[in-house]
């Protein structure tokens, strides 16, 4: 696979991923991952210090499903929306089976009364497999530049 094709596939995956979250289709979110996977949200400072614990840590697709179950059934918060802007993807390594990529990320959060602001800025550190035909994340580490979350972080980034 040439790099142009890899880049195209990765970017398309990011676009679909962002659409899934921003449109609130959380049930589809785990489907962007392989059964065995890691999804983490952690601050840049903690990531660089080698800390294990951040805001989210799921180590299987089923744990992602459980996050969605919690969002739907047990989590209480005011209606809000995310809007992801993903760009600047760099392919760090790739072969036919998988690749590692890093992308920039900005998420704007809009609260129901209209207040909006940059909720998160950071990077996706992704490992993606192409083996099943559809690209999927084996690992997705969301590294947030700020160590701070404003009020609450409900849906995934």
């Amino acid at each position: 696979m040439d790099t142009f094709d890899t880049r195209h596939q990765v970017e398309q995956l990011q676009i679909d991923y962002a659409y899934c979250i921003d449109s609130g289709h959380f049930e589809d979110w785990p489907e962007f991952f392989t059964d065995e996977c890691v999804y983490q949200i952690i601050s840049r400072d903690s990531y660089e210090q080698g800390h294990e614990s951040g805001f989210y840590y799921c180590r299987s697709k089923n744990m992602l499903r459980d996050r969605v179950l919690a969002l739907r059934e047990t989590t209480i918060y005011e209606p809000q929306r995310y809007r992801h802007i993903i760009g600047g993807t760099r392919i760090l390594e790739s072969d036919e089976k998988r690749c590692r990529a890093e992308s920039n990320l900005i998420v704007v959060r809009t609260l129901q009364a209209g207040e909006m602001g940059i909720f998160a800025a950071g990077a996706y550190l992704d490992t993606i497999t192409f083996e099943s035909g559809t690209p999927k994340f084996i690992e997705k580490v969301v590294v947030t530049d700020s160590p701070q979350i404003d009020m609450l972080l409900a849906g995934p980034l």
């Binding site: 949200i41 294990e52 614990s53 951040g54 805001f55 989210y56 840590y57 799921c58 180590r59 996050r67 919690a70 047990t74 989590t75 209480i76 918060y77 979350i149 009020m151 609450l152 972080l153 409900a154």
Partner: peptide, 17 residues
């Protein structure tokens, strides 16, 4: 411990509210 950290903090399953 790392897995249970999902329960706490601003994204915590038992503390987000």
């Amino acid at each position: 411990r790392r897995t249970q950290a999902n329960l706490v903090g601003p994204a915590g399953l038992i503390s987000l509210e």
